[in-house]
Measured scan of single mutants.
Amino acid sequence: MISNAKIARINELAAKAKAGVITEEEKAEQQKLRQEYLK
C-alpha cells in the first residue's frame, strides 16, 4: 500500500505540472509514483 506521504507528493507534483513549473526530473518522479499508486 502506498503511504500518505507519497500520495501527498503525487498531489504536489500534479499542482506543479498544472502551474507549468515542473522539471523533467519531477515529471519522471511523478510517473514513477503514479505507477506505484496504480499497483
Rank of each mutant, 00 (worst) to 15 (best):
M1G: 13
M1A: 12
M1P: 14
M1W: 11
M1Q: 12
I2L: 12
I2E: 09
I2Y: 07
I2Q: 06
I2W: 12
S3I: 11
S3H: 08
S3L: 13
S3N: 10
S3E: 09
S3K: 07
N4E: 14
N4G: 12
N4F: 13
N4T: 13
A5N: 11
A5Q: 14
A5G: 09
A5R: 08
A5T: 05
A5F: 05
K6C: 08
K6I: 15
K6D: 12
I7S: 07
I7N: 04
I7G: 04
I7E: 05
I7D: 02
I7P: 04
A8P: 03
A8E: 09
A8N: 13
A8D: 13
R9K: 09
I10A: 07
I10K: 02
N11E: 06
N11R: 13
N11I: 09
N11D: 07
N11V: 10
N11M: 13
N11K: 13
E12L: 08
E12V: 06
L13F: 02
L13I: 02
L13V: 00
L13E: 00
L13A: 00
A14G: 04
A14W: 14
A14V: 10
A14D: 13
A15E: 06
A15Y: 06
A15T: 09
A15D: 07
A15V: 07
A15K: 10
K16P: 01
K16E: 00
K16D: 00
K16N: 03
K16S: 02
A17H: 06
A17T: 06
A17D: 15
K18L: 10
K18W: 06
A19T: 08
G20K: 04
G20F: 03
G20H: 03
G20P: 00
V21T: 14
V21D: 08
V21P: 03
I22S: 02
I22Q: 04
I22M: 07
I22G: 01
I22T: 02
T23Q: 01
T23N: 05
T23I: 01
E24T: 06
E24S: 05
E24Y: 04
E24Q: 08
E25K: 11
E25Q: 07
E25S: 09
E26F: 01
K27S: 04
K27R: 10
K27M: 11
K27Y: 10
K27G: 03
A28D: 12
A28G: 07
A28Q: 14
E29T: 02
E29G: 00
Q30F: 14
K32E: 14
K32H: 07
K32W: 10
K32D: 13
L33C: 03
L33K: 01
L33R: 01
L33N: 01
L33W: 03
R34A: 12
R34Q: 14
R34V: 15
R34Y: 15
Q35N: 09
Q35D: 15
Q35K: 14
Q35T: 11
Q35L: 14
Q35V: 09
E36C: 12
E36A: 04
Y37L: 04
Y37E: 07
Y37F: 06
Y37N: 06
Y37R: 03
Y37I: 13
Y37D: 05
L38C: 15
L38H: 11
L38F: 10
L38S: 10
K39L: 15
K39S: 15
K39C: 13
